[in-house]
């Protein structure tokens, strides 16, 4: 079933995630906080390519993004979990197509990611209102961008897998 990961160029599009994280475009920020670019790429990938490929992509993204950030707090566990979960949603349920569904999945995913980060910051004794503000802002902006960006990617990946099966 999983087919996208076999094509190098499909996986290479994931390089856009660290690039956008570093560029951090100011016009796509909500109160100084940018979206979780990793989630916006991972969601359509996992929905089309399944839980194993999704978890693998989450692992790869998590390793790269953790390398770009300060400190010991990691995005990796949440990204692996979300890749696996979204892969299952894509495989087991009815096909996800509607913008609202994509936005809702991105919102829940961003809450999970932010929640794990907040828990790690709390464990380090650094959690407070600024971190809660980051969680809420990032969740909102990610969920707002998801219908627009994820539906285009979903279309592209479905075209690719349809071509591969055909």
């Amino acid at each position: 079933m999983a087919a996208l990961y076999r094509h190098g160029w499909c996986g290479a599009t994931g390089l856009v995630v660290p690039l956008l994280t570093l560029v951090s475009p100011g016009f796509l920020k909500l109160d100084g906080v940018g979206p979780a670019w990793g989630l916006l790429w991972l969601l359509p990938w996992a929905l089309v390519d399944g839980p194993v490929s999704g978890a693998g992509a989450g692992l790869a993204l998590g390793l790269v993004l953790d390398g770009l950030h300060l400190g010991p707090v990691s995005e990796l566990p949440a990204l692996v979990f979300l890749g696996w979960w979204w892969g299952r949603v894509g495989r087991r349920g009815p096909q996800i197509e509607r913008s609202f569904s994509l936005g809702l999945l991105a919102l829940l995913g961003s809450l999970v990611l932010g929640g794990t980060m907040l828990a790690q910051f709390a464990w380090l004794g650094e959690a407070g209102r600024p971190q809660l503000h980051t969680l809420l802002s990032q969740t909102l902006i990610t969920a707002l961008l998801a219908p627009m960006l994820c539906s285009l990617q979903l279309l592209l990946w479905r075209q690719q897998t349809a071509g591969l099966r055909g």
Partner: peptide, 14 residues
């Protein structure tokens, strides 16, 4: 300065 992240989870520059 080639990357700037003064807000969010981390406050850092590259």
């Amino acid at each position: 300065v080639i990357s700037r992240e003064p807000g969010g989870w981390w406050q850092q520059l590259l």
